[in-house]
Computed example of a mutant assay.
Amino acid sequence: MPKVGMEPLRRKALIDATISAIGERGSLDVTMSEIAGRAGVSSALAHHYFGAKDELLQATMRHLLSELGTDLRAALHMAATAHERVLAVIAVNFSDKQFRAETIAAWLAFYVEAQKSPAMRRLLRVYARRLHSNLMSGLSKLMPRVEADHAAEGIAALIDGFYIRRALKDGTPNAVSAVAVIEDYLETKLQQHKTAS
């Protein structure tokens, strides 16, 4: 008989094992049995909690989005100005918790999978809309809407680009240099707006 209260812990263990397996493999080419072994549960139990591997992958993607959302809400709550809001969004995407080799590999694998999986594509659209909205919450107060929209698109592309570039390299991810480049882009955009005004 299953132990009461174990299901959330086992689900979390399976999601963590999925991120770890994808990170090590660099693709979604992992089996439920491999993931279950990493999580310390049987393959049958993994199937019981998630059904097919696709459902586990979607749950893992939702988990990553949820963690990112929680971290962003906390950072935005602490931001006192519009400029700080934009900097907070950038910083959270490159925090130690988010910008880890395993998580980066998982994001890249999900992007690839989204080319053929409508469910993954929907989740990535949610991510893109949230990122844009969070950036606009600060940028729209710093420059006209059209300029803010372009700046948000540029910052989002840089964030995604650094994740992709990082996934293709060995070694420890360098969040500091990524943040510096994106902040430089932001300052350039803000300066262009001031000059044009």
Rank of each mutant, 00 (worst) to 15 (best):
R125M: 11
Y163I: 03
E7G: 00
V176N: 03
I155L: 13
K141S: 14
L135N: 01
A105S: 13
I155S: 00
G5R: 09
T195W: 10
A17W: 01
F110K: 05
H83I: 08
S117R: 08
L123P: 00
F50Y: 15
L124E: 03
F94S: 01
A148Y: 01
S33Y: 07
M78E: 14
D149K: 10
D96Q: 14
A101F: 13
L45G: 01
I22T: 02
L108S: 02
G161T: 07
L142W: 04
I159N: 00
S27I: 13
L135W: 02
G37Q: 11
E147W: 05
E34N: 09
R11H: 08
S197T: 12
G69K: 13
H83S: 14
A119M: 07
L56H: 03
A106L: 13
A52P: 00
M32E: 06
V176G: 00
M6L: 12
R166Y: 03
L64I: 05
R10M: 14
A101N: 05
M78C: 06
L57N: 02
R25I: 08
L158T: 00
A13E: 12
F110Y: 11
F99N: 00
L186H: 02
P8G: 09
L65I: 05
L68C: 04
A21N: 07
F110P: 02
A101S: 15
Q58Y: 10
H63S: 15
P144K: 10
K53R: 15
L14M: 15
S137Q: 07
E24K: 13
T81S: 15
R11D: 05
M136V: 04
S66C: 10
T31Q: 08
L158N: 01
K116L: 04
D96C: 07
L131E: 09
T60Q: 12
G161C: 11
I22H: 01
A106P: 05
I155F: 00
